[in-house]
């Protein structure tokens, strides 16, 4: 099993990370090695086993329906680079 250039491009697209075409072969090679390594899992039969999503089986963590958060717009992490006037975040048009 290996990860082809096409796979790399597809995954990069899904993950929104641009990859230079000249780097794709090396990604393909490294990721194939990692995939082979991950394939060792297939050596064991797990058909009757229930998957385990959380290590400690907690349940029902909830909070009351109360407003607890105040306006955080004035905080230091708001950089000019990320915000427009009127506290709107700056994204990019299609």
């Amino acid at each position: 099993m290996s990860i082809s250039s096409k796979n790399v491009e597809e995954m990069a697209r899904l993950a929104r990370i641009s990859i230079n075409s000249k780097d794709i072969p090396s990604y393909s090679e490294q990721l194939s090695k990692i995939l082979n390594f991950m394939n060792e899992m297939q050596s064991i039969d797990t058909d009757t086993i229930e998957p385990l999503a959380h290590p400690i089986e907690e349940v029902n963590a909830t909070r009351a329906d109360v407003v607890t958060e105040a306006d955080i717009r004035q905080n230091e992490h708001q950089y000019a680079n990320h915000m427009l006037d009127d506290f709107l975040y700056r994204s990019q048009s299609d």
């Binding site: 899992m41 297939q42 797990t46 086993i49 229930e50 998957p51 385990l52 999503a53």
Partner: peptide
């Protein structure tokens, strides 16, 4: 598969 092995 990994989640199942995690159970094991």
């Amino acid at each position: 598969k990994a989640q199942k092995i995690r159970r094991l």
